[in-house]
Structure formats: C-alpha cells, structure tokens
Design a protein around this nucleic acid. Structure first.
Length: 502
RNA sequence: GCACCCUUAGCUCAGUUGGCAGAGCAUCUGACUCUUAAUCAGCAGGUCGCCGGUUCGAGCCCGGCAGGGUGCACCA
C-alpha cells in the first residue's frame, strides 16, 4: 500500500484528489477494493419498485452527482444500466459518512440499503452502508440534466469535444449514455446476424488476416513484415478468396465476421480498419442471395429494434417488404438516356459532367459507368433496392451473366442512397477467372493501383472445381450507422483511428 | 492529398477597435438531516494549442507547425 502518493500531475483538481486519497488511507479506508457483490441494479429497482420497496438491496456504481446538506446527503450513482439516487445520513452510517465526504464525482462505490420513495417521489436507496470501491483521481466532465414535466431530458454543458470523446471513449461512455446505446445496438445487430447465419446452417470460419497476396476487392493494402519468414505480408482487404477456397474444400456454407484493412482516405464513411461480414453458399446464385439477404435484414431489425419499420432522416423504411429490383443498365438508360453498354467513353464522360462532377482520373469504361450510376441513380434509391447486373470489368470475381452480354450476375443493396451490401454469383470457371486476373494485372501495369494481382493458388483451387456459389459482403459499420442513425462511422466504432496526440 | 473552419480554467462557452483574462458548472472554505441543474455566503483556479513575426503593447493582426471538424478527391 502506498504510504505517500507520488505527484504526477499539476492539475489542481487531480492534486486535491490525491490528497483525499492520502486522507482515506489515513482513515484506514482501502480505496481500491477487491470485489463487491451486488444483487440488483438501478433499472430493475425503478421498474419493479413495488417489489423492492422497503427491501434491502446491494448496488454498485459511479458517483455522478453529490448533494450534501450537512449531516445528510443525496447522491446519484450510475451503474451499467442507468442511474439511481441514494440517501445517506451521518447518524446512520457514522464513520462511513466521514469517508464519504472525501469522495468525489467519479468515484465508484458499493451501497447496501433499503428502497424508498422521497417526498418528491424519486425512487431512492437509503444507505445502511456505503463503501468506496475505487477512488477516481481524474475529474470527469460534469453534465447536468433536468427532466421537464413532459419527460424530455435537457442536458447542460454536455461533454461535446469530438476529439476528446473519440480519444477517451471511456469518458464518453461514462457521461454520454446515448453513446453506450449505440454500441449495445451494434453488438445486438452482430449477434443476431450471427444467429441468423448459424440457424441457416452456415459455418463460421476464420481465415488469414496476414496474407502474402491480397485480393477480393479493389483497394490499397497495409503492408507488414514477418521477420522469421523474411517476407512481406499484407493485411487483408477482403475475406473473399479464402472463403471460396473453403467452398472448394467442401463446405456448403461459410461466413466470417471480422476486420478488413484498407490503406486509403478517411472520412465519415471510411475507417482504415472496418468490420465485414462475408458469406458464401454452394449451389446457389445471386437471385437466391437477394431473398436470403432480405430475410436476414428483416430478422435482425425485428430482433434488435422490435420492428422492421424505421424512420431515418424523415424517410419511412419498412424492411419487411420485398426490396425493389432494378437493372443497372436499364436504370441508367431511363435516367440519362444513355445505353451504357454501347456508349463511348466520351459519351459517358459527358453524361457524368451533366451532374457537375469531375471526370478527372477516371480511366476505363467500367469506372465511368460506375461513376455515372453513383451520380445519376444512387441518390434516388431511398427505399430498399437491389441494383442488378454490373459491367464485367468492374467485377473480376463475379460470374458472367447467363443471358446479358458484357454484364455479370451481381447486385448491390441500397437504402437511403447508401450501399449496404454487395453480392454475386461467384465465378467458378478457372479459365475465365485467370483471364479476368490477367486483365486486372494489365490494369495494374497501366497504373491502376487497386487492380487485382493474379492469385495463382486461388486459380489452382478453382481448377479442382468449385460448385456454383452465391457470395455476399456486408459492411457492418455502415449497416450500424443506418440502423442507429449515426452520421459518422466514428460514432459506431468504439476507438476510431486518430493521429497521435500532440 | 487539397480547401475552409475550430483550438481560451477540469467541462461548456463569452472575450468589443490591439490596451490589466471572463461567466456558469465542477473544485476548495463555511452553513444546512428529503435534496434533485440543491440552496446560501466566500475563496481559488490560466504557457489563451505550439513556434516565430508586426507593435510601446497580441487571446485578438501576419507566417509556420500540431491536433480536430467539415467539404472535395479516393474508396466499401
């Protein structure tokens, strides 16, 4: 135990708390307890007050407000599920009251006491004992709130500095309860997705994050190095090529939920590491996958939110309905008058320019079509919509369309103009796949840094024979943003990437 | 990567034409045994992000740097 406490910080508030810590030691109070058994929490006491009234409870939490009135005090503690008021009297808890006077907002305490209602009607725990479980040496930002007669909460001086909130998420979580709500929702979305996939007999697997060759998407990778193997390794940009190897190996359905890494720009929809769900199912095609995805989203929304209906940015969205299905090429013709399959690159560029968007740096017909689509059509896809059948050169891992020349069997799901999934009938023809890789390799030598490399082992796997397969990828962070109505990916990632602190 | 905006007490924010650095909450001292943005009385709290320049004098004007935010570009 510390006899004297070394000073490490000059902040007056912290200095004061260190002095209090010393005073607590002097009073023989152990300021960092080993355990404390609770038997209830703030939420259940409030929701089942009739059951709890007059009964003893053991609760623990962080002191969030202290109102001292001489020889009696009210305080508020926050546990994992909410806040509750406690009432303390010096003539009942004696020397513990002396110790209490050395406690601060932010300290973690354990209380034993009985439940009652104050004169003004607030459910409160009348403490018979209050012990310190952890002394807080650093002051938390104090936000005060008042609830008006309509039950609306008004918060004063809310901890608002975005930088501090992201860097010190632990503080953000303590003082901004709605932040914790978002991450609880995120957790439920993922666990229910997993449950749905498991129920449909898909096997959860884990594939390498460290890869000698990256692939499965168009993106620039992070590079790292293995000392013993003396080789460069890449952090994966997608799970796709390994998961399809497992379909070759005889799994009928596999999925993986984990991080991918892309060494690219950051903004409100991009974090360098992000969570993907990818799944592959043998003997199915993209038509089957559309229905599977619809059902999965309906299941998740119902389980997590209790409803398939959402109001997001004033738009009503119902995930119980079948999604609209539109053809990319038909929709572009309807919207721009261009038949993109026969149009020249200049015609496509002119089409894009009509939307006041620069065509600088756009090379290749596929990228031009993609850009035209994203400016002309995507913003209009408010209600859930599958966009079907993409140009072949954009999709080197998707199977050629069974009837439409120049297209592949691929769909992307859009809600509120945002892409939330990407799927195709997987290319299982090794000869065609090698051709596509070879074409990508040519793009790469022509300067497209994001083009695929030739993955010879993947070709070898396909040569052994892969059944017809449907594949799907879902960006989990963006899905959570949509369902929780958060404007930035940083608000759905607990510890978003930041520059090093100054 | 480019453009614009922001950075003042632990937190939330004012700060006039360039002239002694301000408030509320939190902290501290005192009073108070049903308070709840507790109240009342008092005290204290600052490298104005950092470095340089202009000026008799800079939180304020100029330049650079750092961190953050927003938009664009790139992407999922």
């Amino acid at each position: 135990m510390a006899d004297t406490i070394p000073e490490t910080d000059t902040n007056a508030l912290i200095k004061r708390r260190r002095e209090e810590l010393q005073e607590l030691y002097n009073l023989n109070v152990q300021p960092y307890a080993y355990s404390f058994e609770t038997d209830s929490n703030s939420k259940s006491i409030k929701s089942d007050f009739e059951k709890y009234e007059g009964k003893d409870v053991k609760i623990a939490g962080r002191l969030m407000a202290i109102r001292k009135m001489g020889k009696a005090s009210f305080a508020q503690i926050q546990d994992e599920v909410g806040k509750i008021q406690i009432y303390l009297r010096k003539d009942e808890i004696h020397e513990q009251y002396t110790a209490f006077k050395l406690m601060d907002i932010g300290d973690i305490v354990g209380i034993t006491g009985f439940v009652f209602k104050t004169r003004t009607g607030e459910i409160t725990v009348h403490a018979k004992s209050l012990i310190l479980l952890s002394k807080s040496l650093r002051p938390i930002p104090i936000a005060k709130e008042v609830v008006d007669e309509n039950g609306n909460k008004k918060v004063f001086d809310q901890f608002a500095d975005k930088e501090l909130r992201y860097r010190q998420r632990y503080v953000d979580l303590i003082v901004n309860p709605e932040v914790k709500e978002v991450f609880l929702k995120r957790s439920k979305i993922i666990s229910n997705m997993r449950r749905y996939l498991d129920q449909n007999n898909l096997v959860e697997v884990e594939t390498p994050i460290l890869q000698p060759l990256y692939g499965g998407a168009a993106a620039r990778p992070f590079e790292t190095y293995h000392n013993t193997l003396d080789m460069k390794l890449y952090l994966r940009i997608a799970d796709e090529l390994y998961l399809k190897r497992l379909i070759v190996g005889g799994f009928n359905g596999v999925y993986e939920i984990s991080k991918d890494f892309r060494n690219e720009g950051m903004d409100k929809t991009h974090n360098p590491e992000f969570t993907m769900m990818e799944m592959y199912v043998a003997y199915k095609d993209y038509i089957w996958m559309m229905e599977f995805f619809e059902n999965m989203i309906a299941f998740i929304t119902k389980e997590v939110f209790g409803s398939t209906k959402f109001v997001i940015e004033e738009n009503e969205i119902d995930f119980s309905k079948k999604w609209d299905r539109i053809s990319m090429v038909d929709e572009l013709k309807k919207e721009t008058g261009l038949d993109v399959l026969t149009a020249t690159n200049d015609e496509l560029k002119n089409g894009i320019k009509k939307y006041n968007v620069s065509v600088e740096g756009l090379e290749g017909k596929g990228k031009l079509i993609d850009e035209l689509f994203s400016v002309a059509v995507e913003p209009k896809l408010v209600s859930p919509t599958f966009v079907m059948d993409y140009p072949l050169e954009l999709s080197p891992l998707a199977k050629k369309h069974r009837s439409k020349e120049g297209l592949v069997e691929r769909f992307e799901g859009f809600v509120l103009g945002r892409e939330i999934c990407n799927a195709f009938s997987e290319l299982n023809d090794p000869v065609d796949q090698l051709d596509r890789f070879t074409q990508q390799a040519r793009f790469k030598t022509e300067g497209d840094e994001e083009a695929h490399a030739v993955d010879k082992d993947f070709i070898r796997a396909l040569e052994y024979g892969m059944p017809p397969t449907a594949g799907l990828g879902v960006g989990i962070d963006r899905l959570v943003m949509l369902f929780t109505n958060q404007p930035s990916i940083r608000d759905v990632i607990l510890f978003p990437q930041m520059r090093k602190e100054a």
